[in-house]
Simulated scan of single mutants.
Amino acid sequence: MNCFRNGVTRLLLTRIPFFKEIIVSSFSCASCSWSNTEIQSAGRIQEQGVRYTLAVTSRQDMNREVVKTDCASARIPELDFEIPAFSQKGVLTTIEGIIDRAVAGLEQDQPARRVMDKEVARKIDEFIGKLRQLKEVNSPFTFILDDPSGNSFVENPCAPQRDEALVVTHYRRSPQQAAVLGLEGEEVDAKLPDAAEDLRDEVLQFNTNCPECNAPASTNMKLVQIPHFKEVIIMATNCDSCGHRTNESETCSVEIPELEFELGMGALGGKFTTLEGLLKDIRDLVEKNPFTLGDSSTPSRTGKLQEFIGKLQDIIEGKAQAHFIMDDPAGNSYLQNVYAPDEDPELRVQRYERTFEQNEELGLNDMKTEGYEPEAASGR
Rank of each mutant, 00 (worst) to 15 (best):
K288C: 12
K123F: 10
Q161E: 15
V286I: 14
R122I: 00
F308D: 01
L279D: 04
D342R: 05
L131W: 01
Q321M: 10
S300I: 08
V66Y: 00
A330Q: 08
I233F: 12
P211R: 07
S31F: 12
G43N: 01
R44Q: 11
R245G: 07
G185R: 15
A159Q: 07
E187I: 14
A112P: 00
N6Q: 11
L305R: 05
S25T: 15
S174F: 05
M116Y: 06
D117I: 05
A104Q: 15
K123L: 12
E38N: 08
D240T: 08
F27T: 06
T273I: 12
E370G: 07
D146K: 14
F127C: 02
S253A: 10
E262Y: 13
S300L: 13
T251E: 13
P160A: 05
A236K: 09
Q40H: 09
Q176I: 10
L364E: 15
H228K: 10
F153V: 04
R132W: 00
F127I: 04
F153H: 14
R172V: 12
L13F: 10
E136Y: 03
S296L: 12
R173L: 09
E255C: 10
V24G: 02
V167F: 05
P216V: 04
A102M: 10
N6V: 09
P374E: 10
S73I: 01
S28P: 00
L268T: 03
I39R: 02
A195T: 09
V232Q: 03
V50K: 13
P160Y: 03
I99Q: 03
I95R: 04
G277R: 11
N138E: 15
I124L: 15
N238Y: 13
C252W: 01
T246M: 12
Y339L: 14
H244G: 02
G7D: 02
L305S: 01
R348D: 09
P77R: 03
G379L: 13
A196G: 10
L285T: 12
R351W: 05
L305W: 00
R351A: 13
L312R: 00
V67N: 05
K288Y: 14
L335A: 15
S241V: 07
F127E: 05
F18N: 12
G43E: 01
L259D: 06
P290A: 04
A74Y: 09
E307Y: 07
V168D: 04
L166Q: 04
L335H: 01
I325K: 10
E197D: 09
I98D: 00
E107N: 13
A85I: 03
F272T: 05
V188L: 10
L79T: 07
V188G: 03
K130A: 08
I315Y: 01
V254D: 00
A30V: 08
H170F: 11
R64I: 12
R354V: 11
A377P: 00
D342S: 09
M367F: 14
P257E: 05
Q40L: 09
L293V: 03
V120W: 04
D366C: 06
G363Y: 11
E184I: 05
G243A: 09
M116H: 06
I22F: 01
A340K: 01
D201W: 03
E357Y: 08
L12Y: 08
A195Y: 05
E260C: 06
A195Q: 11
A236H: 11
A165N: 14
E260A: 08
Q176H: 10
S139W: 02
D109E: 13
V286M: 15
G182I: 10
C3Q: 07
T57P: 00
P374I: 06
C252M: 07
S41G: 09
L268D: 02
